[in-house]
Design a protein around this nucleic acid. Structure first.
Lengths: 114, 114
DNA sequence: CTAGATACATCAGTTTCTTATGTATGGTTA
DNA sequence: TAACCATACATAAGAAACTGATGTATCTAG
């Protein structure tokens, strides 16, 4: 994804969370949304994104729907019911993990403060 | 490291930060410290830790010093000057990255709040 | 005398990423 | 009109970081 390679296991979580908020999105849209939300500092590469989307679909987390827009094919992804459950799971896992990391990396850190 | 596999790129950062705070540590000690700091929820496996230590040493971030303690060999690691610079770099990178992730994963999030 | 803790290490295999490449359409610009 | 960039999908080779297993060795506890 971005240049720095911290947090390599978070792409799935990002995809699922964006789809929870947006009902349906296509791949290119996801890359642009992430770029926009981070001021261009996190860039999801296509070589990482598309395999991740295919994997999530194969695992039953996402369904697809193809649309034609201006002679261009778009593949829209949306959450399945399993996918919706997975978002909650991944999000609490993420928050717990960041908490642990903060405790290691910043001994002054307390939950409730930034 | 732990079971969940989020944040795979953070092991180096963890090692460097612990060594910034502790002057010198040996491998097994690092695994125990992390386990202790996270209530057993993050476990650094030896298969991940030792190669990471060797790599950081090869890159000039760490130096080693072997000690005999009760007929047991301990390999103590400490930060070099380059290593000390690297800690600062990795830490600000980490904080920036978590900030970006929070903006994606939690639209309500603002810096200054948890 | 077996099992677990301490302490190091390596290695095969897996996952996840980067970088490059490929196809195709449409707009802009020199 | 050729070159280039944006849009939009996709794959594939190689790198990097991990898991889980295995190995060596010492010491303690049951």
């Amino acid at each position: 994804m971005s240049n720095n390679s911290l947090i390599k296991g978070s792409l799935q979580t990002i995809i699922l969370k964006l789809l929870e908020e947006n009902e349906k999105m296509y791949g290119y849209e996801i890359t642009q949304r992430v770029k926009e939300l981070t001021g261009g500092e996190i860039k999801i590469t296509e070589g990482a994104l598309y395999p991740a989307l295919h994997k999530l679909e194969a695992e039953g987390m996402l369904t697809t729907e193809i649309q034609q827009v201006d002679n261009r094919v778009r593949k829209y992804y949306s959450l399945t019911q399993d996918g919706q459950k997975e978002v909650s799971a991944k999000m609490s896992e993420f928050q717990r993990f960041v908490g642990h990391l903060q405790r290691i990396l910043d001994p002054e850190w307390k939950p409730g403060l930034a």
